[in-house]
Design a binder for these strands. Structure first.
Lengths: 135, 135
DNA sequence: ATGTATGCAAAACATTTGCACCTGG
DNA sequence: CCAGGTGCAAATGTTTTGCATACAT
């Protein structure tokens, strides 16, 4: 439950933090910008400043509750962190984002890093393009 | 030769464009920010505005002469485009960037895209971490 | 000549920060 | 009560733009 997540993260359970976390859990958009969150809160008549949204999301990121991505286009997008790692496919036309995970790629990355005496702390794999199928 | 590249790209051969292109070809740093370019030009007593550097780099990108990357940390970095695609390994401590290419990963990306009815126009794979070896 | 490029300063963005006030435990 | 959190406005850092001037063809 949200309240627990915040406490575990060592964050005081305040209204803004609770509201933002719940919103992230409730929304059907897995990937949102700080501005998105801010506007969604405005629509709900919640009175939270944009600066606070940024601060809270940054704290959530530090706590591992959310992941911040820098896809194309200035704004960073945040997604609720779920246990498993995954990469992204971003449609340049519609903005649609699909997540995927591939063991072969993950394994090769580790091998390649080792070959270069490199220790991976994180990685980003994003495919940009567009969906061609019916739907 | 630089002059040709510009003409082929449909860009008028002006001093700023020539100087920036030559600088990119001459420097040993493959990855530079707009600010880097601007400062390098200042050091050479070339009088080119930062705005022009941005404009020119953006045109070069559109022309396929350079590639723009958004690694961690606000600024975009540009690299001279050479025929072959490659991915990057970025050291979070030193900023060192190593390029690599792996057929297995490239192939899997295409397969995965196909599985999702997705047409890749571009992709980004960056490993963040740090080099552990001697050097 | 003449349409395009440039330089400068100002604007535009996304994000961060300073500070007085509010709030959770 | 009191450290920490919040809102607002102002600051920041990067990139873009408007406009008068300069340049390439």
């Amino acid at each position: 439950m949200s309240r627990q997540n915040l406490k575990q993260a060592g964050l005081k359970v305040t209204q803004p933090r609770m509201k933002i976390l719940k919103l992230l859990e409730a929304t059907d958009k897995r990937h949102v910008t700080a501005e998105d969150v801010y506007k969604m809160l405005l629509n709900k008549k919640e009175d939270i400043g944009l600066a606070t949204v940024y601060r809270v999301l940054t704290q959530f990121e530090a706590a591992g509750l959310v992941v911040r991505h820098h896809f194309e286009g200035g704004q960073a997008v945040f997604e609720l962190a779920n246990d498993d790692h995954h990469d992204h496919m971003v449609c340049l036309k519609t903005g649609k984002i699909v997540e995927f995970y591939d063991d072969i790629i993950e394994k090769r990355q580790k091998e390649i890093a080792k070959e270069h005496g490199f220790e991976i702390t994180d990685h980003v794999l994003v495919l940009y393009g567009n969906f061609t199928d019916k739907k």
